[in-house]
């Protein structure tokens, strides 16, 4: 039985997942730039736009479930749709990281930053590169790329550890910086998790193609602030 309409809808959903990914990428980029620039209006826009990301995620989830229910796909098609359900959840949570960074920006308000933001934008660059690459790999079902992208996560983790050490040093020198250091640590933590979620997307790509779940090493990032003394 040829399933032309089914495969057209599958392709449409795949394109929509990529579009959701781009919205998330834009949100995180904008949140980090707004933090660097101390642009509170831009931070508010990221907060408002998060609703669009959430709406698109739930609309996609609905459409994927309808397609599964009405077409009863099998084999790689079923794995593809199951992977999409996972990936849109990852993307929506990544969108929340953009929102979280924007909230921190607003909490900092008019404060000057205790340090110039160097490593945090670098973390964002790499994590967002991982996100964009993983979305491309998903569109092409490129297993080799999906196995390569997670290697980039080590750089994100290393930068995260660097930010951690740097902020600890500043707090030791000046305990008044404790509160802002804690907030910046959360920004770094959000970006570190964004990298991890891009890795999760890669795991799902391998699952679609090979039918086996592969877990990459979770990395070597330091504990988030709440877990450190």
């Amino acid at each position: 039985m040829l399933r032309v309409a089914f495969h057209a809808e599958l392709n449409r959903l795949q394109a929509d997942v990529a579009q959701l990914g781009m919205m998330v990428k834009t949100a995180i980029r904008k949140a980090v730039v707004a933090l660097q620039d101390r642009n509170l209006d831009a931070a508010r826009e990221v907060l408002a736009d998060d609703q669009l990301i959430n709406d698109k995620r739930f609309r996609l989830e609905h459409d994927i479930l309808v397609l599964i229910a009405t077409q009863q796909p099998l084999a790689s098609d079923l794995r593809n749709l199951a992977a999409m359900l996972e990936i849109i959840t990852e993307l929506e949570r990544m969108g929340d990281y953009g929102k979280g960074i924007s909230k921190i920006n607003l909490m900092l308000g008019q404060q000057y930053l205790i340090k110039p933001l160097v490593d945090i934008p670098k973390m964002a660059d790499i994590a967002l590169d991982m996100l964009a690459s993983s979305l491309e790999a998903f569109a092409a079902l490129d297993v080799e790329a999906a196995k390569r992208i997670p290697l980039m996560d080590d750089q994100v983790d290393e930068l995260y550890n660097q930010v951690y050490r740097d902020l600890i040093e500043r707090v030791i020198k000046n305990p008044d910086h404790m509160e802002q250091a804690n907030m910046l640590m959360w920004v770094a933590h959000n970006l570190e998790r964004a990298g991890d979620r891009a890795v999760n997307i890669c795991e799902r790509i391998i699952f679609v193609v090979e039918g086996r779940m592969t877990e990459f090493d979770a990395g070597h990032a330091a504990q988030p602030p709440s877990g450190s003394n």
């Binding site: 040829l2 399933r3 495969h7 099998l74 084999a75 790689s76």
Partner: peptide, 10 residues
């Protein structure tokens, strides 16, 4: 087999 079970021919 993959093509058949996913409805790409048949």
């Amino acid at each position: 087999t993959e093509d058949y079970v996913t409805g790409r021919f048949g």
